[in-house]
């Protein structure tokens, strides 16, 4: 909170004043006799026994004579939408440090008292909003989740890092770095793992030709498929199929695993 001005002013009969002109305006005020304060649809006659704090109010002098109002204008570092309409009456007793500080600053506005008033007002608003404002519903950044889905479900397509990055409007290098940081594996390595994992299942459970499996898991050529497969598993796809068949015939279980 930053105090912009503090003063005693006189409102004339019939005057209507809206002091909170900006989105981050706040006022602390107290009238020296009865006056009307409007906040939204709420209209209330207020007495001089309280000070009033608001970020959206209108002062209306409905009396037949002038009413003196002590008023401090503040500017908040947060806009109003962050807070929400606020109106509160604080009892005017001497135990309240904010009230005291307001009066002290009104009597003698030196830098020290202004700073104290700003700080106390900050604390006060902070305390009030801790209990009032519901936490903002924070969205989860879905970009990496979307990339993960693409890799998981569309591995049979010919996916390039550039293409995947385009899907989330992101720089390929940046995508690769953040993906690796979060999932501890780069997107392209993850794609290869999913492809090889699925290829192993197909080799074990179907009689599909190597050519067909190559296409089903998204490789362009059988030689590309074989190279990656060997790199991951240690043996060629044909050899793998032969071995797994042998193991099955012996009654052993071949459990496919992603690794």
């Amino acid at each position: 909170m930053y105090l912009l001005s503090i003063s005693s002013s006189v409102t004339t009969p019939g005057a209507t004043i809206s002091p909170c002109v900006r989105k981050n305006s706040w006022v602390i005020l107290y009238p020296e006799s009865e006056i009307t304060l409007k906040n939204g649809n709420m209209r209330r006659r207020v007495k001089s026994s309280h000070i009033y704090i608001s970020n959206n109010c209108t002062i209306i002098n409905e009396a037949k004579n002038c009413v003196k109002i002590n008023i401090a204008f503040f500017c908040s570092s947060h806009v109003k939408s962050y807070h929400s309409d606020f109106f509160e009456a604080l009892p005017f007793d001497l135990t309240n440090s904010l009230v005291n500080s307001f009066q002290a600053t009104l009597n003698n506005a030196d830098l020290k008292s202004i700073k104290l008033l700003n700080d106390l007002f900050d604390d006060y608003i902070h305390m009030k909003y801790q209990y009032k404002v519901k936490p903002v519903k924070k969205k989860i950044d879905s970009r990496l989740i979307r990339v993960h889905r693409i890799i998981r479900t569309r591995y049979s397509e010919q996916l390039s890092l550039t293409y995947i990055a385009e899907q989330i409007q992101c720089n390929p290098v940046y995508l690769s770095n953040t993906y690796s940081k979060v999932f501890k594996i780069s997107p392209m390595k993850h794609l290869q793992n999913i492809r090889i994992g699925n290829a192993r299942i197909l080799l074990e459970t179907t009689d599909f030709s190597i050519l067909k499996i190559t296409a089903l898991v998204g490789y362009i050529s059988t030689s590309q498929f074989s190279t990656y497969f060997k790199k991951h598993v240690g043996i060629s796809p044909t050899e793998y199929r032969r071995l797994s068949k042998k193991t099955r015939e012996r009654g052993g279980l071949v459990v496919s695993q992603y690794f």
């Binding site: 989860i140 950044d141 990496l144 989740i145 993960h148 889905r149 998981r152 979060v182 999932f183």
Partner: peptide
């Protein structure tokens, strides 16, 4: 949370 979402989805 991102990791969790992905794990549950997977």
């Amino acid at each position: 949370t991102i990791k969790l979402v992905v794990k549950i989805e997977e």
